[in-house]
Simulated scan of single mutants.
Amino acid sequence: MEFPVDVALAQLAPALPTGPGWWYEIKLDGHRTVLWRTADTVRLQARSGRKVTSSWMDIALAGMELPPGVVLDGEAVVVVDGRISFGAAQSRAASSPARARQLSETHPALFIVWDVLAVSGRDLRGRPYVERRAVMFDVIGALPSPSAIQAVSATDDPEVAQAWYDSLQDTGVEGVVAKLGSSTYRAGRSSSWRKVRHAETVDAEVVGYTGTPMRPRSLAVRLPDGRTSLSQRLSAPLSAQVAVHLVAVLAGGRGRTSAGDAYSAVGSGLVVEVLAGTTRHAVVTVTRIR
């Protein structure tokens, strides 16, 4: 496995999936981080692949207790006054190495692990989630206690997962991630990993689309706070319903969302109901046409 690694991502879902084989993990509001324990040091990478070791030296120091050849995936978080603080994590990540060290003295970071990608240099990404999780516990369980490296809370009981989702938002928990126990670790988004964030239903104006008017893949919507964002991929029934409106109006050239994503602009006058993340993410899922 070569540094950096392309990370696996979860698809946004409006509700927790249920049924045989699903596992559920608490989703924390921090910085996605992959920890590499090499023969003589520890390297940390961000989701983008950028090396971020200097921002999280307290995690890197804890990682030196791991055996060489271990690669862990998880979230770097900072707890302030008993609550996970994304602002504190963001400040750490944006600081110079010297400033990051100062911040770590006041609010040390935790590395909350949810996956192990390699052990003793052996690639585990092709193994099922339940097998990787068992190995992950073996690896983390061998660390001295207390450690800044900890395993994420997980359950195969959907009622427990729903209780987490309903009760832990005030502690800085973003939501819950559901993973199939048989799922391998695949780069990019996969339907076998689904995330449910704390969200609210809002009405949003459709300002564009991706795909074609006859078969729109996603919609560019203007949220109530003024941000423009691409929705998650439309379901087939929703795509067909939206197409009826799009083919009846003229295209208006090209546009870009607040995040820079391109779309075909249109002045349709169409309003849709969406689930809009209440955290820093402008991720939306279209639920129906208003």
Rank of each mutant, 00 (worst) to 15 (best):
E2V: 15
D6N: 11
A13T: 10
A13N: 09
P20N: 12
K27D: 15
T33Y: 00
T33A: 02
T38G: 11
T41Q: 11
A46I: 03
R47K: 07
R47W: 01
R47S: 02
G49F: 03
G49Q: 02
R50K: 13
R50I: 12
T53A: 02
M57K: 11
D58G: 10
D58V: 07
I59V: 10
I59H: 01
L61D: 12
M64K: 05
E65W: 07
E65L: 03
P67E: 15
P68W: 05
G69L: 02
V71H: 01
L72T: 13
G74A: 02
E75H: 08
A76N: 05
A76W: 02
V77S: 03
I84G: 05
S85C: 02
S85M: 02
A93P: 12
A94V: 13
S95Y: 03
L103I: 08
E105F: 06
E105N: 09
H107M: 01
A109K: 02
I112R: 04
W114R: 04
D115A: 01
D115Y: 01
V116Q: 01
V119I: 12
R127V: 08
V130I: 11
A134C: 14
D138C: 12
L143D: 03
P144G: 06
P146V: 03
I149L: 13
V160L: 12
Q162T: 15
Y165C: 11
D170H: 15
Y185K: 00
Y185M: 00
R189N: 11
V196A: 06
E205Y: 08
V207A: 05
V207K: 04
T210V: 09
R227E: 08
L230I: 06
L250D: 15
R254W: 14
R254F: 12
T257K: 00
Y263G: 00
S264Y: 12
S268L: 04
G269Q: 06
G269W: 09
G269L: 04
G269P: 09
V274E: 06
T278D: 08
T279D: 14
A282H: 07
V286M: 01
